[in-house]
Nucleic acid binder design. Sequence first.
DNA 1: CATGAATGAGAATTCATTCAT
DNA 2: GATGAATGAATTCTCATTCAT
Lengths: 233, 233, 233, 233
Amino acid sequence: MGVGRCVKSEGRLAAALVLEEGVSLDEPEDGRVRRAAERRSQRQEQLLAAARQVFAQKGYHATSVADILERANASRGTFYLYFPSKRAVFEALLDTMFEHIQSAVRRVRTDPDAGPVIDQMRGNVERVLGAVEQNRELAIILLREAHAHEVELDQKVTAFYQRLMERIQGGLRLGQQMGIVRVCDLQTVGNLLLGALKEAIVGWLCSDGAMPRDRFALEILNYVAGAILVQSA
Amino acid sequence: MGVGRCVKSEGRLAAALVLEEGVSLDEPEDGRVRRAAERRSQRQEQLLAAARQVFAQKGYHATSVADILERANASRGTFYLYFPSKRAVFEALLDTMFEHIQSAVRRVRTDPDAGPVIDQMRGNVERVLGAVEQNRELAIILLREAHAHEVELDQKVTAFYQRLMERIQGGLRLGQQMGIVRVCDLQTVGNLLLGALKEAIVGWLCSDGAMPRDRFALEILNYVAGAILVQSA
Amino acid sequence: MGVGRCVKSEGRLAAALVLEEGVSLDEPEDGRVRRAAERRSQRQEQLLAAARQVFAQKGYHATSVADILERANASRGTFYLYFPSKRAVFEALLDTMFEHIQSAVRRVRTDPDAGPVIDQMRGNVERVLGAVEQNRELAIILLREAHAHEVELDQKVTAFYQRLMERIQGGLRLGQQMGIVRVCDLQTVGNLLLGALKEAIVGWLCSDGAMPRDRFALEILNYVAGAILVQSA
Amino acid sequence: MGVGRCVKSEGRLAAALVLEEGVSLDEPEDGRVRRAAERRSQRQEQLLAAARQVFAQKGYHATSVADILERANASRGTFYLYFPSKRAVFEALLDTMFEHIQSAVRRVRTDPDAGPVIDQMRGNVERVLGAVEQNRELAIILLREAHAHEVELDQKVTAFYQRLMERIQGGLRLGQQMGIVRVCDLQTVGNLLLGALKEAIVGWLCSDGAMPRDRFALEILNYVAGAILVQSA
DNA sequence: CATGAATGAGAATTCATTCAT
DNA sequence: GATGAATGAATTCTCATTCAT
């Protein structure tokens, strides 16, 4: 979950998590411990939610731990009980976001029983749009402030975009092999595509529903198709 | 420009500058003033250069005035002698950059004696690439640290991108009227194009000459052409 | 008061204070909160005391937050935990002083069952002397550093003296109507009296008990009586 | 002059002053040197005037050397050529003020051919009022901000007031010996008088001519007379 | 004599993090 | 587990003073 890694006294949390999963244990203590663990993750969720909102509203730098505390109605001590640092919360949020988005992108398949490539692409686009739409605030931060932060955060973001790029380039390469994608420099066109998507999605998210999702997906698909497919008859 | 506005005792400097332009005077006084003014703007250049480098390396927020000072080998006081604030240096740098880039983009003309549109576009692309190549560090900041949180800075950056977007959308609209550009949502495709260019150019600048400029320009043109032109026979 | 307003997380403190007053609760929780609140206000008192001393010694401007910190044995952060600014501490101190002094001055009454005017005046003088004696440092600041340059502080001090002047002039006017006070310009004589008191009290406070309070009060009364009363037979 | 003491390279100034006084020397160099010395003291006067105005307007602390420079149309270097520090200019101004005021106060004489005491007092009061009226700005600073400054300045101001106090007390003592002044504590009544005068004069100066000088002097005299003279028949 | 660029010691304030209770 | 008071390093900015030219 990425969040787990952020907890300060890892020992304790580890124990708690193990117990949390050890549902079927029938020891008398279990009930109590379980409830404790639940309360624990509830608290964490609370903090994460608060952080997400404040970060989205004010950006990473302008957000102070105090802001998060206030919105979460928690105390400083509590915060550092669940997260080792302000950065860690942000990272946890980013991780969640990353997962959502990444799990929305499926590798394009060429086996006979996979549908037509274009439909797979449309599926990817629509799933990604769904994912970012569900995490608007966070997505906007990720897409916008991407490189504006602390060095270590930057690495995380960079890594994410690199993974994305690999998928994109992989797709392009495959498409070239299949004769669908025109000859081009993978690096450059990969960047062009990634940037295009980032900017357009931010714009879309910020326009706040000015264009329905499917219509927007179609615009993207047409654009991408034109940009990379061979102009066959 | 913009930089000049940051200097504190404008009156005197202005006077000095005027004298500097008062070419033919050969009095000893003149020489001294002239040298003083030169030294002054040299120092400013020094500070700007240092700021440019540090900002590019660490981003706006992570850069402290102390960082700039260290690299410029100047003292705190000197800095505030030339710029009223950290933000002001950044703004000065941005202004320079904006001018460079904007003057590189020429409105596409359709009069008979203007060359073919595609050539005009190529010209634009190549000029822009030339401009950003000459201001690598600055361009990277501008393209990356898109939104700078500091409200007034953000306005500046946003305004710049808006102007750019207007040109892009204007071009698209014109193309559509001429029947060259395919039917599409100007807002969305405008964003897609702007984002594509931003990302690709940053990538190119950071790869540090991995690809010659004309080759890179060609990749971009092919991409853009495919993305927006009608797929005529 | 005024001091309370300076505390940052007002909500929680307020709660704590309420609990503090929730007298009969004997739960362990209560005790803890109570002690916490006590420690809190103790700390504040500590800072105020330190500030009072340093301000009295060096004056408002020459005193740096660091000076206060040093004397209070607190750290920078702590200071700003209790007061939003250097000015705020000073204001808090002034407010306390103002209240003390003002509550010592009672309006002179002429109803039959009020004692003789001269006794009421003596009462006022002695009460004021008592008040300033109890707040020596503070009083010295107030009386000396009359105008504090920091605009908002100045307003506060000026307002205080104006209120005082109004009382003095009111008293003079009343006395004139009663035929006790000689004919004179209220503004001028008001100033003369106010200034006389300020200077003499500062001198007395600084002489550190060289003259007993009642003796000093008598000197003042004689002086004032001579200065303003009609020289009746 | 007090000012002389403030000059940085005392050697040079001393030389200049000597030469300035050495008017009748007929050496060929004289004219030039003389003009130089004149220019010199002109410059100094210029700086002093500028300082006086700015100090009066903004107070000692709020005034920066830059403010003075701007108003005097001089450069930093020039300033420090004539005065070793910001404080020194202020001191020079104070010194001038002191002299003016002090020379306005004449010791009360009791020899037969000296006029009546009360007339001598009136004379003193009117001369002092004349002096402060001529130096309004400076006088206001002196009377108001008296003790709000740097330690060393304070000493100067304190010393001035002490000299004044000595005269006042001397006068009182004399009066007592002559049987004119009532029995009282010299220290206390001295303070009362000094304070009364300070406050009233400031008020008068600030009211900007609301009351003519002689009328104001009369109010003061009546007040003082009542406050200190024996209430003889 | 005159200049004004350069200096650097502070000043106030913020805020992530720690730790005693 | 929970709390919130305490910390102090870091940041931006000011301004009296020096000194090379």
